[in-house]
């Protein structure tokens, strides 16, 4: 019996080393792994909040309408109802924050209208398209069309009840 205890004592040293090693591992792990790691899954939970902090560039149509309700009404009644303000006017979150300091420039009509309305067989057939070179003969689109309500009413429209 005494002999057995003496042999058993040899295991104490490796056991101690193992426990100490485990302890060192746990301390280093606790120090190195970010606090929120594993909060929702195998990733840093705080990353979600970090990504949310990014500033916004496009204020959104609802924000525009709060001040520019007159233009919004014209647009909502016309063919461009589904086009949000910033789709043509560009990102204006800064303008919404401080309207006086950040005055937006008017968009370049020559480039802007063509991007959507230049004829392309790949575009859906319901979408109004023109070959601009033939359609306007070099005139600016805005000479005839009002961008917020671009349809030009004709006598035929009055008969068919269109006229938007």
């Amino acid at each position: 019996m005494r002999r057995f205890l003496q042999d058993w004592a040899h295991l104490l040293l490796p056991a101690g080393v193992l426990i100490a090693g485990l302890g060192v591992f746990l301390v280093i792990r606790a120090a190195v792994v970010p606090k929120s790691f594993g909060e929702y899954g195998h990733y840093r939970g705080a990353a979600l909040e970090m990504i949310r902090q990014k500033p916004v560039s496009y204020a959104g149509q609802d924000m525009c309408v709060m001040c520019h309700d007159d233009q919004a009404k014209v647009k909502a009644a016309g063919k461009h109802a589904t086009v949000h303000c910033e789709a043509c006017h560009g990102p204006l979150a800064k303008h919404a924050e401080d309207p006086a300091a950040n005055v937006p420039k008017l968009p370049d009509v020559a480039v802007l209208c063509k991007r959507c309305h230049e004829q392309d067989p790949a575009k859906p057939s319901w979408f109004p398209q023109v070959v601009t070179a033939e359609h306007s003969g070099g005139m600016k689109c805005t000479e005839c069309h009002q961008p917020h309500s671009p349809h030009i009413a004709t006598e035929a429209d009055a008969g068919s009840g269109r006229g938007k």
């Binding site: 426990i19 485990l22 302890g23 060192v24 746990l26 792990r29 606090k35 929120s36 705080a46 909040e49």
Partner: peptide
């Protein structure tokens, strides 16, 4: 060994309770 285990338990607890 005891001190190491205590330290790691403490650090883990802080990790759980101190989440954002």
């Amino acid at each position: 060994g005891k001190m190491l285990v205590l330290a790691s338990v403490g650090a883990t607890l802080e990790e759980i309770t101190g989440a954002a």
